[in-house]
Amino acid sequence: MHRFANPARFQRLASIILPWSDVLTAGLLVSGLYFALFASPADYQQGETVRIMYIHVPAAWMAMFTYSVMAAASAASLIWKHPLADVAARAAAPIGAGFTAIALITGMLWGEPMWGTWWVWDARLTSVLILFFLYLGYMALVNAIENPAAAARAGAILALVGFVNIPIIKFSVDWWNTLHQPASVIKMGGPSIAPSMLLPLVLMALGFHFYFVSVLLRRMRSELDLARVRALEDAIALNSEEAAA
């Protein structure tokens, strides 16, 4: 694991992966969009609005996936003091928040024609909304602490606390939902999904994953560069102080 802890080795690895992940992102998303918008049938119940699903469901998956990546990276950072793990967790957060925002916005845009209202306090939407707040809290905390090591440590603890609490929050929201919601909401997706709909769903989901890899690596790169910029600037400031003394 520590083999990749070296920033220079990471930079080399990133330059090998990035062209591939960029091409895969573009290819998967273009073909995914083709099947999502042209080559798939409208749903017999939901009509053309079913096409929102090809954005909404993969984005919701990515919202959870990204938080899991953050939690795993945070664990690696706390247990093995792995310096790249901090950078990864920190770099992943805005991407995850972005996917969560997409899931929420498309959820509203899907809810209006389907349920007749922009917002339904349905268990899934509510859980995603809470997940969005967890992302915002993480980003606010990490940005509020100036010392990079302290920020990394605090962020890692918060991400892990959030992660172990997610099942409990999810359970409580489901519990709350069964108390308050008459079960009239149309089930999203459902287990028996037609293959013609599964294909764009899978393509979009894979495209989002490679998008995540591409953007994450670029963000990690700039975090590492900025850390060295800070170190060099400190060294230069120190040198000029010594020269002045």
Binding site: I130, F133, G137, A140, L141, G162, I169, S172, V173, W176
Partner: peptide, 14 residues
Amino acid sequence: SLLVLPLYIPALIF
């Protein structure tokens, strides 16, 4: 409040 309130949701609900 941003860090803590989301984690209070289960207590609120139950």
